[in-house]
């Protein structure tokens, strides 16, 4: 009888440990960005602002991650002495090869999100959703849920706060909470058109 209770308890404990400790670690696939890019260097030394590279097009759509043309505008030749910059020029600028950036913030196809409405009309700061991305010295690894295919930053409740980065502000709950706080419309069809 006692043996049965011990068996039940050990099964339960094992599952709890697996579900709370191991599962969050194996849930996401981690990949490195193609270039060791420092937002901090660009912001502090070059004095660049977010919208200098992450610009809006003439029609108001958001250009997202800058293409190589934008980088080549300054980096046709090395501007500093770092190995990262030299590597970037040799690997991408000189052969005119587009870096395959992994977008943390790419929303799924079923989400309609307008940057210009939030940034220009709503005066929402970049940091409010993207965190202190612009002040980091290196790009963090990209984490993707291999089953859904979504970036960790845009979907999924925090599974367990065990050694993992604090979740960002680009998930549906974040959108809803922000809209609710400000007394704005937050119906399903606002984003899921």
């Amino acid at each position: 009888m006692i043996g049965g209770k011990i068996a039940f308890a050990s099964g339960m404990l094992l599952a709890l440990a697996g579900g709370w400790l191991a599962f969050p670690r194996i849930l996401y696939q981690t990949r490195q960005q193609p270039v060791n890019f420092s937002h901090k260097v660009h912001a502090e030394k070059a004095g660049a602002k977010c919208e200098d590279c992450h610009s809006f097009r003439d029609d108001g759509t958001y250009a997202g991650i800058p293409t190589l043309d934008k980088c080549s505008g300054c980096h046709t030749a090395a501007m500093g002495t770092t190995a990262e910059e030299k590597n970037f020029i040799d690997q991408y600028v000189t052969p005119n090869r587009e870096p395959q950036w992994l977008s943390y913030a790419q929303q799924p196809e079923n989400v309609y999100f307008s940057h210009i409405a939030h940034v220009k009309l709503g005066h929402v700061k970049c940091e409010q959703c993207h965190g202190n991305e612009g002040g980091t010295g290196a790009l963090r690894p990209y984490q993707q849920d291999p089953i859904s295919g979504y970036s960790r930053d845009i979907w999924g409740r925090p599974v367990a706060p065990v050694g993992l980065r604090n979740e960002g502000g680009m998930k549906m709950d974040d959108c809803v909470n922000c809209h609710r706080r400000q007394g704005l419309e937050y119906s399903c069809l606002g984003c899921h058109k």
């Binding site: 339960m12 599952a15 859904s148």
Partner: peptide, 24 residues
């Protein structure tokens, strides 16, 4: 032991997350 494991798993986020991930 298996029953305990199943009961314990239900108290973790794993099965619920796998259901929604599979839907996506």
């Amino acid at each position: 032991f298996v029953g305990g494991g199943a009961a314990g798993a239900l108290l973790t986020p794993a099965p619920w997350r796998l259901i929604t991930d599979t839907a996506l």
